[in-house]
Design a protein around this nucleic acid. Structure first.
Length: 570
RNA sequence: UGGGGCGUCGUAUAAGGGCAUUACACUCGGCUCUGGACCGAGUAAUCGGGGUUCGAAUCCCUGCGCCCCAGCCA
């Protein structure tokens, strides 16, 4: 392969390889398209989720790789369901994902006048007619999956009559549902979409953009492909459920005086385990209060993921890794989590935070004394520098880092055991103080003053290093831990989706103690709480009380070992 | 005999007549002041049955399974 070839391949494919990119490459090579134009076409009736991110990455990605462009187009053909609020939110979410549509922002409603003219064109060509049948009657006449439909009694209506009626529909002479405009194709087709599909319906509803200018609106099928053609879209990429619509898409393009001929290609939508990605389900979760809102950190919405702390670059990486194909899929959450960890590991500042505090008193450390110790901000990034962490006689450590009767592989604190306090001293546990109920409430320990900074001059090693905070200097905070929203990989598969909701998807820890540097510095940035996970500040925080969300936990080998031994032990 | 689509490691994918690829997950080992990260190794797949061929995941035949479609939603 020549340098020019490989450069072109790199530019077009950028390493990514899938059947869509193969088609695009072939079309470019064969001169079928001079340049590539794609579009991301959300309907403004809800918030974007990670499935939309897959579509965005494909559409914007293919365009960028091939030196083309990608439009943002709102499919706003149904004013009954759509709201302006969503338009702004969607634009913000697309930008947050890092995509730029430049000057190419469109709405299907921008094309309403042309679409209307094309509808008249179809009527005049004898390819569309106004039908007076009710919605129920149309359904009955449509037939079933295995039986052909019947022609509507209005199917042979003269073009002039349909034209007159259609104009009067536009003029507002008829109530909602009184009549529709139908394409005249084939009531016996095996493809239901070709059984004279409705292409215009009467809707006396105020449209978010066109206001009261219209009382008839085109359906998706009559708007989407034609909008593609008007905007010069070359490759109209959509999900598999529209495969059946392609013959209709092509029929309309073939029978209308369109300026360009777009082609539709379909790929498999994303399914993510332990969550739902259908707009209907997501709306239900919000409206019925199963989550706190569209931006609940447990939601697979982009707003939810953002609040949870997933960086857009991690989501893009995820989309790249899952690929594009036509087979139904169910992607593991572990992959998304991996993408977040990989990015955050490189970028997140390390801090010490004790989520479930257990008090430790260093008996041989002078009362009232405080010293500061140097801690590294990010071992993966020397340029992140260091910080000072206060140390004193009374500390908090993680309750889980102490066991009274430790099993074999437990490397942390236990009676008589020595561990390292990260960046500080070696300490040895002398006694576990218990309350009346037998619960450990405090640890009495001693420290070795010669191990300041974390290394013993005599070269002795400790197996465990644990995190800590100085009791007197710590700030208190709330930390929210999240688990899957649902308990099963495919919610609703065997019954009501709501029955599969995970009652433990949210854990709120109220009494967390954080190192003081967490009170001010870079509150917007993600941090790693050492040995625990990646966290980000939540907007619920107040100046007095920070709130952190756990984006994703660190890989936890100890938890795995524990689980295994539990299984073995019965 | 409605129409359309899809079946490759546990998951997601690549290869489109010539060594079944890569990543995640998993297992084992190394290293480590995070049981993190990192490094190394390993387990693991072409839906079944025929056929063509020197050679089939790939081509042909046949069977099976799964998904989508009967909105005036998109």
């Amino acid at each position: 392969m020549s340098d020019a070839d490989s450069a072109a391949a790199a530019e077009v494919g950028e390493g990514a390889r899938d059947f869509i990119r193969d088609i695009v490459r072939a079309d470019l090579a064969a001169g079928r398209s001079e340049s590539v134009v794609t579009r991301f076409p959300p309907e403004p009736n809800g918030y974007l989720h990670i499935g939309h991110a897959k579509s965005m990455c494909l559409n914007f990605g293919v365009a960028r790789e091939s030196g083309g462009r990608c439009h943002l187009r709102f499919d706003d053909t149904n004013p009954v369901k759509e709201e302006h609020e969503y338009i702004e939110a969607i634009e913000a979410d697309v930008r947050w994902m890092g995509f730029d549509w430049g000057a190419h922002l469109y709405h299907a409603s921008d094309h309403f006048e042309t679409l209307y003219a094309w509808a008249e064109h179809l009527i005049q060509a004898g390819l569309a007619y106004v039908d007076d049948l009710s919605a129920e009657a149309i359904r009955e006449y449509r037939g079933t999956l295995t039986e052909p439909g019947k022609d509507s009694p209005y199917r042979e209506r003269p073009a002039e009559e349909s034209l007159d009626l259609f104009r009067r529909m536009r003029a507002g002479e008829f109530p909602d549902g009184a009549r529709v405009l139908r394409a005249r194709i084939d009531m016996a087709s095996g493809n239901m979409n070709l059984r004279d599909p409705v292409i215009y319906r009467i809707l006396h509803a105020r449209h978010p953009r066109t206001g009261d200018a219209w009382c008839i609106y085109p359906t998706y099928d009559f708007a989407h492909g034609q909008s593609d053609a008007i905007e010069g879209v070359t490759h109209s990429l959509c999900t598999l459920e529209f495969e059946d619509h392609r013959p209709l898409y092509d029929w309309l393009i073939a029978n209308l005086p369109v300026p360009t001929v777009p082609r539709q290609y379909e790929f498999a939508r994303l399914n993510l385990a332990y969550t739902v990605l259908s707009k209907r389900r997501l709306i239900q979760l919000v409206e019925e209060g199963h989550v706190s809102g569209w931006d609940d950190p447990r939601m697979p919405t982009l707003r939810g993921l953002r609040r949870r702390g997933f960086p857009p670059a991690a989501i893009r990486d995820f989309c790249k890794r899952i690929g594009i194909a036509k087979a139904d899929n169910l992607v593991e959450v572990a992959l998304l989590e991996h993408c977040a960890r990989e990015l955050l590991n490189k970028t997140a500042a390390r801090r010490m935070a004790v989520l479930r505090p257990l008090k430790v008193v260093i008996e041989n450390y002078p009362e009232g004394q405080t010293e500061t110790l140097k801690a590294i901000n990010n071992p993966e990034d020397p340029s992140a520098g260091t910080r000072q962490v206060p140390f004193s006689r009374e500390l908090y450590i993680e309750a889980g880092d102490f066991m009274e009767a430790p099993p074999k592989k437990f490397f942390r604190l236990a009676p008589g055991r020595e561990v390292r306090l990260r960046y500080a001293y070696f300490i040895t546990c002398r006694e576990a103080v218990k309350d009346a109920a037998g619960e450990v409430t405090e640890l009495r320990c001693t420290y070795d003053p010669t191990t300041r900074g974390g290394d013993a001059p005599d070269g002795r090693k400790v197996k465990g290093t644990i995190h800590w905070v100085s009791a007197a200097h710590a700030i208190s905070a709330e930390v929210r831990l999240y688990d899957h929203l649902f308990t099963v990989p495919v919610p609703g598969k065997t019954g009501d989706v709501l029955d599969d909701l995970n009652p433990d998807s949210l854990t709120v820890l109220e009494a967390c103690r954080l190192e003081p540097s967490l009170s001010q510095a870079a509150m917007g940035a993600p941090v790693q709480f050492e040995r625990q996970g990646y966290f980000c500040p939540d907007p619920d925080a107040t100046p007095e009380r920070p709130v952190f969300n756990r984006t994703v936990a660190l890989r936890d080998t100890w938890a795995k070992i524990q689980k295994k031994s539990q299984k073995r032990g019965g």
